[in-house]
């Protein structure tokens, strides 16, 4: 599904990604964990074309998308719920979802909208409220629902559990699992909440300072001594 090969990304002179290799196969849930500033969000954004990879290649179902225009990438079946959620604050919930549906076939809109409201009933109640006035958790739900409106094959999620109450975190993780099982959406998940993420994921990567330091199945990484001390201590 997704292959990232030797990708280097810079912010000016700062090298944020120093040769990253990652593979996500069709139907998998793959997670990426790492400390603050490791470069996780940079990787997700580089996959979508902003910032651009300066070296290396990104392929989607075999097709090179490294230099594809940013607005074309979603048409290849990639949707992202980015860091900070980036809800359009002065648009209603419904309008935010309509924005997500822009590249999907208009005939499917009602069905996809119904599905989104089924996954997140809160959004249905608040559909005419402005995005900027939603609570953090509601904004997170909206960001995921908006990404799903484009009918993606690959869903990129950047810290969907950040700042949310344990109940909401649980709900979000359930939805991720449901999307993956029922709709065969491949998921690439960036998480600080390493315990939850690794339990859910088929495989995982650990990023340290712009490089992949470790990889394995979710189970292997959960059992790994280094991972436990660095990312799980005091967790769950």
């Amino acid at each position: 599904m997704l292959e990232v090969e030797g990708v280097h990304t810079y912010y000016g002179a700062i090298e944020a990604l120093k040769g990253v290799d990652i593979e996500v196969r069709e139907g998998e849930i793959v997670t990426l964990i790492g400390a603050n500033g490791a470069g996780k969000s940079t990787l997700l954004m580089t996959i979508c074309g902003s910032p651009r990879a300066r070296r290396g290649q990104i392929r989607l179902r075999g097709k090179d998308i490294t230099q594809a225009p940013m607005h074309e990438i979603v048409r290849q079946g990639v949707a992202q719920s980015p860091e900070g959620r980036r809800i359009f604050p002065r648009m209603t919930v419904l309008e935010n979802l309509q924005m997500g549906a822009m590249t999907a076939h208009p005939d499917n809109f009602e069905r996809n909208l119904g599905r989104a409201f089924e996954l997140f009933p809160r959004l249905k109640e608040r559909q005419h409220q402005r995005g900027g006035t939603l609570s953090g958790g509601e904004q997170q739900m909206l960001a995921i629902a908006r990404a799903l409106m484009s009918e993606p094959r690959l869903l990129l999620l950047d810290e969907p559990s950040l700042g949310l109450a344990p109940m909401v975190v649980k709900q979000i993780f359930q939805v991720i699992e449901q999307i993956n099982r029922e709709e065969k959406v491949t998921v690439f998940l960036v998480e600080q909440n390493a315990f939850h993420a690794l339990r859910l994921a088929d495989r995982g990567y650990v990023m340290v300072n712009g490089r992949i330091a470790m990889q394995g199945t979710g189970r292997e990484l959960l059992a790994d001594e280094e991972v436990r001390t660095a990312y799980l201590e005091g967790g769950h």
Binding site: C48, G49, S50, P69, M70, H71, E72, I73, V74, R75, A79, Q80, P82, R86, F88, P89, R90, M91, E95, Q98, M99, G100, M102, T103, R146, S150
Partner: peptide, 21 residues
């Protein structure tokens, strides 16, 4: 109009959703 407003509010996000900014 929605595309126009989306670009006003967050161009990067608009592009992520497929808007040609």
């Amino acid at each position: 109009g929605r595309r126009q407003r989306a670009c006003e509010q967050d161009q990067t996000m608009a592009a992520l959703l497929g808007v040609d900014v």
